[in-house]
Amino acid sequence: MSTLLEADSEKLLAAVRGLLARKGIASHAEISERIAITDQANPGQGARMVAKAWIDPAYRTLMLSDGAKAAEAIGIPMRGMPPLGVLENTPELHNLVVCTLCSCYPRAVLGYPPFWYKSAAYRARAVRDPRGMLAEEWQTVIPAEIKLRVVDSTADYRWMVLPQRPAGTDGWGETQLAAIVREGDMIGVTIPRA
């Protein structure tokens, strides 16, 4: 512990946490709880939402109208998180999420963003040449007749994609469905396969 505290950043952090506690803004326990919630968030949580939406039409409707309520409904903590919007892929429309200005990402339901999500290359090319980027980097070819909609996460919302349920999954249960939904499927760079 003493070696950690020798770094200036650690001393600064300890001082700020001490001040937050003393001024009654955030207790040590509240900060620890928030760190635990952040560390627990992972793409498996978003995948559970997607799988449930594929099986339960009422849940799908809730998810599309208010992502945060849908997340809370299956036990994902959303208190203090930005509003969550859900973008539905259809046979006519494919959504792709990017944050060209920084790295806004639906961390509450997907966890930490993948490294490439924050790269200047992804942020620039996702808006400029989305079809070329998807085909070359992810081998995701969006058929010409399907409209591609690039959603630039520039302000207060966070966005996740609800992909289409793949063929060959008839009769599958929620757990089995959730297992095939990857992080990239919920950003729109890949498409789930059975």
């Binding site: 808006v127 400029r128 040449d129 989305p130 079809r131 070329g132 010409a144 409209k147 591609l148 909609r149 690039v150 959603v151 630039d152 996460s153 520039t154 302000a155 207060d156 919302y157």
Partner: peptide, 25 residues
């Protein structure tokens, strides 16, 4: 705050008419 749709082709000339950009403004 609004969600505003733009034509991808008009902004970046991807040469795929119909593609869109959706931005919070």
């Amino acid at each position: 705050l609004y969600h505003v749709l733009f034509s991808q082709d008009a902004v970046w000339h991807e040469d795929h008419p119909g593609d869109e950009l959706l931005v919070e403004i």
